[in-house]
């Protein structure tokens, strides 16, 4: 039987992995975006799990919206990435510090 604890732990591991990914791949914007997708997936895991174990459908509705936002985010993020690459011939994060204070 899959308990709530199982799902939450799995989601925590996924979340931690994505966080680690952000550190490890700190130069590559593309991988950073992927890590964010992974992070959102772990959040979705929590929503689905709670939704099911509480017997409420609303959590799944939120997953639906998160998917929407994530899709929009990755579309725009990738678009920016493409434009960026055209300008700089690079997706190295360390080159992208124009906003540095």
């Amino acid at each position: 039987m899959i308990t709530l604890g199982h799902m939450l732990t799995l989601s925590a591991v996924l979340f931690a992995l994505s966080v680690a990914g952000i550190f490890i791949n700190r130069r590559n914007v593309l991988l950073l975006l992927m890590c964010i997708e992974l992070l959102l997936l772990s959040a979705n895991f929590n929503f689905v799990a709670f939704s099911r174990y509480l017997g409420l459908v609303d959590g799944e509705v939120f997953v639906f919206f998160i998917l929407t936002v994530a899709a929009a985010e990755s579309a725009i993020g990738l678009a920016i990435l493409v434009v960026l690459f055209r300008e700089r011939r690079s997706i190295n994060v360390e080159d992208l510090n124009t906003l540095r204070g």
């Binding site: 966080v19 952000i22 550190f23 700190r26 914007v29 950073l32 994060v93 360390e94 992208l96 510090n97 124009t98 906003l99 540095r100 204070g101």
Partner: peptide
């Protein structure tokens, strides 16, 4: 404080974490 604002995504992410 400005030094914290490095402009690097990963440092922001790091502080969030």
């Amino acid at each position: 404080v400005r030094l914290i604002q490095s402009g690097f995504l990963y440092s922001y992410a790091f502080w969030m974490i």
